[in-house]
Simulated assay, not measured.
Amino acid sequence: MAGTRLRRRDTRTDFWPGFVDAMATLLLVIIFLLSIFMLAQFFLSQQLSGRDTVLNRLNAQISELTELLALERAGKRDLQDTIAALQANLGDATAERDRLQGLLSSSTDTASQAGGQIALLEGQLDDQKQISDRALAQVELLNQQISALRRQIGALEAALEASEKRDQDSQAKIADLGKRLNVALAQRVQELSRYRSDFFGRLREILSQRSDIRVVGDRFVFQSEVLFPSGSDEINPQGELEMTKLADAIKELSGQIPPEINWVLRVDGHTDNRPLSGTGRFRSNWDLSAARAISVVRFLIDQGVDPKRLVAAGFGEFQPLDEGDTDEALARNRRIELKLTER
Rank of each mutant, 00 (worst) to 15 (best):
R166K: 13
L177A: 15
K173L: 15
S170T: 14
Q171V: 15
V183G: 00
S193R: 08
E191H: 02
E164W: 12
N182E: 14
L192P: 00
L181P: 01
L185D: 08
L192D: 01
R188M: 11
L177N: 10
V183E: 09
A162F: 06
K165I: 09
L181I: 12
S163A: 15
L160Y: 04
N182L: 11
E191S: 07
N182S: 12
A184D: 10
L181Y: 10
A186E: 15
K179I: 13
S170V: 13
D167G: 08
Q168R: 04
Q171P: 05
Y195R: 06
Y195C: 11
D169V: 08
S170M: 13
Q187S: 09
A172P: 07
S193K: 10
E161A: 07
A184F: 02
L177P: 00
K165A: 09
A184Y: 01
L160F: 06
A184K: 01
D176V: 03
E191M: 05
L185K: 01
R166F: 05
E161H: 05
K165E: 04
R194P: 00
L185W: 06
L181M: 11
A175F: 07
A186M: 11
D167R: 06
A184Q: 07
R194S: 14
K173P: 02
S193H: 07
R194H: 10
R194D: 12
A162I: 04
Q168D: 01
L177F: 14
Q171W: 09
A162H: 07
R188T: 04
Q171I: 15
R188K: 13
E164H: 13
A186F: 13
E191L: 05
S193C: 03
Y195V: 11
Y195E: 00
E164P: 01
A172E: 10
N182P: 04
Q168E: 02
A186W: 07
L192G: 02
L160C: 00
A162D: 13
D169H: 09
L160Q: 03
R166A: 15
K165M: 08
S170Y: 08
Q171S: 13
Q168V: 06
R180M: 04
R180Y: 05
K173N: 07
E191G: 01
L185I: 03
A175K: 03
I174E: 12
D167V: 05
L160R: 14
R188W: 06
Y195S: 07
A172Q: 10
A172S: 14
D169I: 05
S193P: 00
V183K: 07
D169A: 08
D176E: 15
G178S: 10
E164A: 10
E191Y: 02
A175Y: 07
I174M: 09
A175T: 13
I174L: 12
K173W: 12
L181D: 11
A175R: 01
Q187E: 12
A172L: 14
E161C: 01
